[in-house]
Design a binder for these strands. Sequence first.
DNA 1: GTGCCTCCTCTAGTAACTAGAGGATCAAGC
DNA 2: GCTTGATCCTCTAGTTACTAGAGGAGGCAC
Lengths: 147, 147
Amino acid sequence: MPTITIGKLAKAVDVKVPTIRFYEQIGLLPVAPRTENDRRLYDEASVRRLAFIKHARQLGFPIDAIRTLLDLSDHPERPCESANTLAREQLSAVETKIVQLKALRSELRRMVASGCDGSAGDCRVIEALAGPELLGDVSARGGESNL
Amino acid sequence: MPTITIGKLAKAVDVKVPTIRFYEQIGLLPVAPRTENDRRLYDEASVRRLAFIKHARQLGFPIDAIRTLLDLSDHPERPCESANTLAREQLSAVETKIVQLKALRSELRRMVASGCDGSAGDCRVIEALAGPELLGDVSARGGESNL
DNA sequence: GTGCCTCCTCTAGTAACTAGAGGATCAAGC
DNA sequence: GCTTGATCCTCTAGTTACTAGAGGAGGCAC
């Protein structure tokens, strides 16, 4: 018997209300039963499910991976190979990102260290951006946009 | 006298053609002059400007910051304080991100290390995701989405 | 009864592109 | 002169994972 309102669920898991509706809409959360006044109602299982999602998101798993993970957790009899694979993939994505960011960090440190206080004409920061790229093959995919 | 086609510019800087049009549209690149057949034409200055943008993007500067940076580089007589500030901000954003990702990495490593090969019911990966969050206050802003 | 809070739906906006439709033009080879 | 394929044009919509806001109904406390 579900008795938890969407606001309470949001508070319990520390997720925003619209996010919960969004998760329902994309099918990460099941369609919630409603009161006669059309308010969504949740139970303890919903709290656990949402907490699972939140935790996975914090670890950077994309929604599609979380879908698979939830599916597995809903069917305990299935082999969990794919969960392991997803975790390994996510780990290596994170590791790659760290390497890339460290390269960026050192270039930015050089830029900041040679900090100038004059006019833009002889600013080292701008010079460094304009100059030939000394950067290794960091983020050859075209930038910073995603994990 | 501009003579470089958009395709050549794209190749010269290693940026995709639609990206160049996009940069023009949002005002990062000036509106290019056209041939009588409506093709955009560029010159060496365009190559330098686009390279500047690309390099700044690789370093993770957001478009708005790049706008400021380009503006400064267009007006060498202005003080370059803001360039320094932007670089410092970007550096600290990158440093923060590295710290966050390292925390994620260690949790993912623990998950992967305890890798199971049975069924989802007793999968450590899923258990780790479902269990109480042991995670420190990493990425309290809600995840991985941006730099 | 009167605020104020929570809830509802729906649309649009965010960042920084990327992909695709549908069509015109160009350069090279035969 | 013609065909073929590459390149160009514009415009719209899709990507990710939400977030913000409009506009309105219902519920609770005093």
